[in-house]
Design a protein around this nucleic acid. Structure first.
Lengths: 179, 179
DNA sequence: CAAGATAGGTCAGCATTATTGACTTAACGG
DNA sequence: CCGTTAAGTCAATAATGCTGACCTATCTTG
């Protein structure tokens, strides 16, 4: 495979057709790029944790639950449902497994005993931390590389992309249920 | 529901337990927040396009394919596989439907006739544009709100989160196949 | 207290998106 | 001609999501 010719599954620019109409304006190109940025950054950020999860027979859905329970001990089931934006049924499967496997504990609310307040067990905390570490390595590298001002900008854009409730949540000024 | 008492599915801070160990250090808290930022921004960014897709009986996977084919007319099947990081089988289902429904056209490579160069039909372009518009509204609002410097920072951090091939791709210095 | 609302759980069934492994066809390339 | 590559396909399976119906326990309110 020493030929200069593209090695087959490589992308070669449009073969005959005109070069596919140049971007209409600068900001369109910028927004096209943002789509790519979000896709690739999310893909690779989640991927590092997926590798850990795979060993344990867990999936991304389990990670999300562990993450939000870990950050909000005493979270209720319905608050978690609002955050994840999935149905009760979908969460049940994930949560039941986490409880069965001893990662998550449930305690009745002491003011309202209908509530099942969710917390991580020590085992759950250990796993969550392990998952976090894998993403932290990637993140700290990225933050260092980009610099503190860039991090501020990153935060500002990400905040502006999410809905109002999620914004309040990440600002620490809202309840988890709003997210 | 006029009582000050948390309205049931609202998240109330840990009921009795100590306030859940304060963050170990500043940068840990920062990275915890970054996990949230990525989750919520991605959730809400994809959500606006999902609403359009739903009407047409398509899913997120179809959008991704449309997006990358649209941005890279003449893309090969295997380049697309590398970008999406899914298997041939998973892509086949998505791609076959897009071709059946007349969104995507395939043409044999003219240098290497094994290749099926993928392009969007006019119908495909129209749909891709419609999907793009929905995300563009959200994005332009976010970019405006955050300001041009923040956008630069956003880009820098996102670039640093993705792997080398994807970085080259978004910089326009790599082939699609590397992403 | 009785009635209605809420939190949570559960059952059955289904759709989408992903996986693996094996195999085929066509075309390229030495 | 032969080995490799691009692409397509078949069969089976898994993870994650959905709907709708229904149940229980508990809280809230008239």
């Amino acid at each position: 495979m020493l030929k200069p010719k593209p090695g087959a599954d490589r992308f070669v620019p449009p073969p005959k057709l005109p070069p596919a109409a140049p971007p209409l304006d600068l900001s369109e190109a910028q927004m096209r790029q943002a789509q790519d940025l979000l896709f690739f950054a999310y893909r690779d950020f989640t991927n590092v944790a997926d590798k850990v999860l795979e060993e344990l027979g867990l999936g991304r859905a389990h990670h999300r639950a562990l993450h939000f329970i870990g950050r909000n001990p005493g979270l209720t089931v319905s608050a978690l449902l609002h955050i994840l934006r999935i149905t009760k049924q979908s969460l049940a499967r994930v949560l039941n497994l986490l409880v069965e496997d001893g990662y998550v504990a449930q305690a009745p609310g002491y003011e309202d005993r209908r509530l099942r307040l969710l917390t991580l067990t020590d085992k759950g905390k250990a796993l969550e931390r392990r998952l976090f570490e894998s993403q932290r390595n990637l993140l700290s590298q990225a933050y260092l590389q980009a610099g503190p001002e860039a991090v501020e900008g990153f935060r500002a854009v990400m905040r502006a992309l999410m809905d109002q409730g999620a914004r309040a949540y990440v600002d620490g000024t809202g309840s988890a249920e709003d997210a």
